[in-house]
């Protein structure tokens, strides 16, 4: 817990306010990763990094709606953090004709 002293209006006395410790970001990151895996998104390949009150998401999502759904899941799992979703959508266009790897 963190104790804070707030002067009252008459300046003579102080209120003592007690605030909970902020949750260590390591636990936030793991909670977010688990939420992305367990929610309807079911994505295990997202890398989550916390810095400066932001959560950075990198990796791939299977589609644009999937990518957007991951943002929603993260916002719910970690309220108060700004979500920076830099997930790429895995391209699903066919390879050009003739693009063949000869083994």
């Amino acid at each position: 817990m963190i104790a804070g002293f707030t002067p009252t209006r008459d300046g003579k006395t102080c209120d003592v306010t007690v605030q909970p410790d902020p949750e260590p970001v390591e636990y936030v990151v793991e909670r977010v990763r688990e939420a992305i895996a367990q929610a309807d998104t079911h994505e295990l390949g997202v890398t989550v990094r916390a810095a400066g009150g932001r959560l950075l998401l990198t990796g791939t999502a299977s589609s644009e709606p999937h990518r957007a759904a991951i943002t929603t899941v993260v916002e719910r799992a970690a309220p108060g953090y700004e979500v920076v979703n830099e997930l790429c959508v895995a391209p699903t266009t066919p390879p050009p004709a003739g693009q063949v790897e000869q083994l």
Binding site: G45, T60, A90, P95, V100, E101, L103
Partner: peptide
């Protein structure tokens, strides 16, 4: 023996085509 990881995010396209002689 040759190994290929064909996870779609690695390929950057819908599939890879391999030719065996």
């Amino acid at each position: 023996i040759k190994v290929r990881n064909v996870a779609q995010p690695v390929l950057d396209c819908a599939y890879r085509v391999f030719e065996l002689p």
